[in-house]
Amino acid sequence: MSNIGRAFENGKAFIPFITCGDPDLETTAAVVRAMEKNGADLIELGIPFSDPTAEGPVIQEANIRALSAGTTTDKVFDMVRSLRSGDDPVKVPMVFMTYANVVFSYGSERFISTCAEIGIDGLILPDIPYEEKDEFIEITHKYGVDLISLIAPTSAGRISMIASEAEGFIYVVSSLGVTGVRSEINTDIGSVCSAIRDASRVPCAIGFGISTPEQAAAMAQYADGVIVGSAIVRLIAANGRDSAPVVGEYVKQMKAAII
């Protein structure tokens, strides 16, 4: 088991997502530190991809900004390596969120062994469903990196199959569609989470559409953590290189709302 379990030892976990290199990697590093300091329990780092098919407009645009700024997989690895070393290393568990082709084209073993070496605890690949995970999981197991499983509102009949083999945490997709801020979340998330509980002891965290402390508190009733992406990416889009304090303050409020 990786360090991801530690993220769920401090009450309900708050899991922020940011796109690496948006607007540049120095800002990403500063935002990671600010999020850790303000109570983030696990940090999801997005490696930008040219065609992020599971993302809504906010994160699509962050991907474009990051790639336009010259962000590459190797530069993201360097940033994480430097965050995890030095006098004041970042200790919070971190996972990468990216698309299968970014891993595959780098060489899956080369990518995943580098994750282990630099202190990345898990990998979220939204275009790798249960049926396609084998070609990656043999490698993630070899290097002790968790491959995170996703469960969606449309996963009826598949929940116990997916949950029983899950590791790290289970990413519960709150609603249909792509990532992005939503005013309402209508899925019967409680029954999805209880079906997961019946099949697995791995913690679950709910993501997609959550932006306000009220929504986070509501979702935290059902799960072990909440994931917030687009709302933070929007703050970064608005604040650019000055994002770290703003995102830190937001993370503090969100953690306070769910703990």
Binding site: I128, E131, E132, T154, S155
Partner: peptide, 12 residues
């Protein structure tokens, strides 16, 4: 080939 798609679409 294969089915490299989000879980949301798998049952579809």
């Amino acid at each position: 080939g294969g089915q490299y798609i989000p879980e949301t679409l798998m049952n579809a």
